[in-house]
Design a protein around this nucleic acid. Sequence first.
DNA 1: ACAAATTATGCAAACGTTTGTTTGAATTAT
DNA 2: ATAATTCAAACAAACGTTTGCATAATTTGT
Lengths: 341, 341
Amino acid sequence: MAKRVTIQDLAKELNTTTSTISRALRNHHSISTAMKKRVLELAKIRNYQVNSMAANLRSGKSMTIGVVVPHINRDFFANVISGIEGVAKTEGYSVVICQTNDKIDKERDCISTFLKTRVDGVLISVGLETDCFEHLEQVKKMNVPLIFFDRVQESSNSMTIVNDDIEGAFQAVSHLLDEGYKRIALFSGPDHINIYRNRKQGYLNALEKRGIEIDEKLITSNNLSYEAGVESVKRTMKLKNPPDAIFAAGDYVALGALNWLKKNNYRIPEDIGVVGYSNEKFTNYISPSLTSVDQHSMEMGRYAAKTFFDLIKSDNKDIVLNSLSINPKLIIRESSKRKTI
Amino acid sequence: MAKRVTIQDLAKELNTTTSTISRALRNHHSISTAMKKRVLELAKIRNYQVNSMAANLRSGKSMTIGVVVPHINRDFFANVISGIEGVAKTEGYSVVICQTNDKIDKERDCISTFLKTRVDGVLISVGLETDCFEHLEQVKKMNVPLIFFDRVQESSNSMTIVNDDIEGAFQAVSHLLDEGYKRIALFSGPDHINIYRNRKQGYLNALEKRGIEIDEKLITSNNLSYEAGVESVKRTMKLKNPPDAIFAAGDYVALGALNWLKKNNYRIPEDIGVVGYSNEKFTNYISPSLTSVDQHSMEMGRYAAKTFFDLIKSDNKDIVLNSLSINPKLIIRESSKRKTI
DNA sequence: ACAAATTATGCAAACGTTTGTTTGAATTAT
DNA sequence: ATAATTCAAACAAACGTTTGCATAATTTGT
């Protein structure tokens, strides 16, 4: 690896010192415009690139924020990341992404790497397995700002950016009831994750409001994968009293269920209605298109990043401890529109 | 931000020096086991985390490889990244991901950030817009290993990991011909990107081999988005002599076409066959399921990373300039199986 | 015209590691 | 018993920046 040019090289060439070069490059006010011009020009010619390691070591900031997500190939998370990147860029920060595949071990690894590389903040949506939070306590112990989004650790007093999942689920289930469905199954995720607990609550609230009795047999908890959807719907439809609609807490699990139903000659939405959650892009492309709950993912990312910057800019760190809840929006598509047909 | 504990703190506490601590932590042979034990224990208690910035500054390596991709929410790229992460991890490296959304400006930004943060290598799949390579020349000028995958810069003498796209397209189109389709349209991407040029070549080869005349009207070049698929199929089907099959160089563009066809009452595969490229997960979930070409994406990632490590480990950097081509595999699904129905 | 204020630059320390060299003690070989 | 070797730890310099402070030159106020 060839030697890279440093500010010392530039200083020598211009017969000045590193401090002047450093300040000139960062447009410090105490450097004359003439000098700035000379420095900038030479830097360009010599192809100078600041060594962030040295700069960050000295300044104590890495200008980097770490983002931990379960999967990067979900539209939801990809959009959140885009949102984060957008505001990070305007602040001159870069973001590094780490995916956990919902495994707690990988999550620990990610956090550990971030701590070592001294990211200035950590934004995280926890994995399905995560029911213990030592690794995150670490982050706080190190005084690194920690912000949760979507799947949060509620016990902590960290900041959280979430959707109002109770409301989202409530809307989805109410919509199914409006369409005339009577027995609605719930496919959700583990109860120790806030969003699934809340979506279940929204489901329960909607039924209760209409005075419909809860049937525990219709409630399934799984890992929300496509395969889990297939498996769950197969089992649920075998009940002596099967459902006439399914509300799934994720789009992939809904898709698995929907495809199994199609393959087994159920008509959707006539025989059975299906609603998913997250408004993944494919929901619009499949047939029948899948009703789903949009979570304003890009905005969620923007808010998460903004919260981080608010935090590091405020001097009184204790006061800004406000969390944020975004209203989701039900997107009605073919898979649940029985009445209008 | 509270003070983090350093090896100096540990040294003071154990009445020794930083060099001993440093070596003990990295299990250097010249440190006694007794001392190692004391250091490790204290480090654990004090919650010591190495400061990568300092370490990397001193050692001149960042133990990080930068990956540049057009989109992270494509299964293809997500899998490549998984592959890269896998081998990086076994070597103790971390990977940082940067997405360009196919914009050359963002691509330049990514590269610039990577250069500043002194990544030890850059793995890149270039964006659709990228037809000028100064920013990549920069990387090489800085003597940072640069490895291309999938969408490569052929003019450079860098290493490249690609699929045999000519072969993949050849198989796909031959399959359509085998199924009895006669007029096959091609929806591809810009010709300055290797993969699209090659897929087109494979298409041409397959037709030529069967002695079928090329009809330029059936060949479209677009940005391979869903919307481009809708637009292109709409226009193509209006021809006085429309195609009876479509070979699309991407799954999303195929999906757009397929959905438009369905909506307009074409039967697939009876009236018209459709084949995509990349074997995105959704191809298996839609109906009719979409025939597509699998690119062994995870392997591609592994090879790319391995190539990088081979490179930095070899002392004679000039010799290992071997590139790699992976054989793709046609996955036949419903959208093109006319004969067997 | 002289002190005070401003402007532009230089000096030197610091950030937290890694690593080549030195030192001293303990072990082995002759 | 002495020289040669090995082992364990210490010393000190270096990586490339940033930044508080000192300094010199210039401008301003009176």
